[in-house]
Amino acid sequence: MSTMPLDRRGQPILVQWWDLFRMELTNWRWSWRGSLLQGTITPIFSLLALGFFARDSGREALLYVVTGNIVVSLLFGTMTSVESRVSWLRFQGGLDYVATLPVRRSAFVLAMVAAFLLLSLPSVVITAVLGPLLLGAPVHIHPLILLVIPCCTAPLAGVGAALGMTGRTQQASGNLTFLLMLVMTALGPVIVPPDRLPGFMVFLGRFSPATYAASALRQVMVGPVTMRLLVDLLVLCAVTAASMAWVGWRMGRQEE
């Protein structure tokens, strides 16, 4: 009979992250339908409807519609997919599987967000390419867009994960996400320029990450890139860090 090994170890954290990332990427097997429908078709229709309406309001309003709908793609595609994934894990026992593997919670949360970031890219690219073409509003892409897109996606994925860890039931999490998605789209200068919005909505928009994501995208797609981009990215990174820390903490909190 073999003796019990006392020094069993899992993998180093980077290897854990890589495996978990690849495991999370298998979510494309179900999430592609949502990404296609919600992350691509919804923003394209919204873009067409609002774009034709905004045509008379000038180029600036059109460009708000283009960049705002990329954020809509992230809200409808990424945030909802991550929320569905996390609440499914919570209520179907998937978190028990992860919790009984020798992996760090932080590695799992980072892997999940990174996987959904990658899974959201096709929708974002399609919306970003089709939007200006359909509305006839040419954009000037700044190389910093390569940094800005992940920085816009990660906080919305993080908020989606936090929502998935929040509801008392899977349905409650879904309803809360849908509500928040609409609020984040409407509040602040996301799709509509600030001078067309009531003052209180512009003010409340300061508390929504979608506002900062839209601002960052406008600067790298329309210009000019200013110091405001740094502020936007810092806020988006802070929301990412806070939401992921909260998700990690909630995951580690054992059932009472």
Partner: peptide, 20 residues
């Protein structure tokens, strides 16, 4: 319940690898 959307072979491989 189902293990993610992993195939049977993937679930076994990743679990064994993560366990060292």
């Amino acid at each position: 319940h189902a293990l993610n959307n992993m195939a049977v072979g993937e679930a076994l491989y990743f679990t064994a690898h993560l366990r060292g």
